[in-house]
């Protein structure tokens, strides 16, 4: 089943183009790194606020309102460029431990965000400056750790497989 899907992705013209063109892969990877850096940096801004380590005079609701649109645009860019990189060598990426770990960590980051949004954020007052309850601080800490691990796995992919 999975092999059929990977074969279909490998047969896509866009993937073959990225694998064969001398500048397509480097430019796609550059765009992916820049998008991921902005995703991580903007999320970290909110995580540090949740943990009470920075921007304590800015309410979490105001901060998320102002930062999350940036995060989502960058995440969309990272997802598109990441999919393009994957299409250049789907079997290679799928067989790579760090790629799978990165995908699991992204899933964990998503679950952490949903729990924060639907549970923690509704229980704690997020529209005032100041230090937040333990649940919110823990959510910020878990998010920061997960995203640092995402960056690390992304870098280790480059050292454990050839791009195509």
């Amino acid at each position: 089943m999975i092999d059929t899907i990977l074969d279909a992705i490998a047969a896509l013209p866009i993937g073959q183009y990225i694998a064969e063109d001398p500048v397509a892969f480097p430019w796609t990877e550059t765009a992916h790194v820049i998008c991921l850096v902005i995703v991580f940096g903007s999320i970290l801004l909110i995580d540090l606020r949740l943990m009470g380590l920075a921007s304590r005079d800015y309410s979490v609701n105001a901060l998320t309102r102002t930062i999350l649109p940036v995060t989502w645009v960058a995440f969309l860019g990272a997802a598109i460029t990441g999919a393009l990189l994957f299409s250049s060598n789907p079997h290679g990426y799928w067989g790579n431990f760090y790629f799978k770990a990165k995908m699991c960590l992204l899933l964990a980051a998503g679950v952490n965000m949903l729990v924060f949004h639907f549970v923690t954020q509704r229980r704690a007052p997020m529209d005032q400056p100041g230090v937040l309850p333990g649940g919110a601080r823990l959510a910020g800490f878990i998010s920061a750790v997960i995203w640092i691990a995402v960056i690390a796995c992304g870098r280790w992919i480059g050292f454990t497989m050839s791009p195509f």
Partner: peptide
Amino acid sequence: VVPTMQTIHIIAVAFVMTAALIVAL
């Protein structure tokens, strides 16, 4: 050593670039 240093390097780049992005925006 090299992958770990690159990971820390990228994390530091995230601090600098996000700051520049937010100030510019």
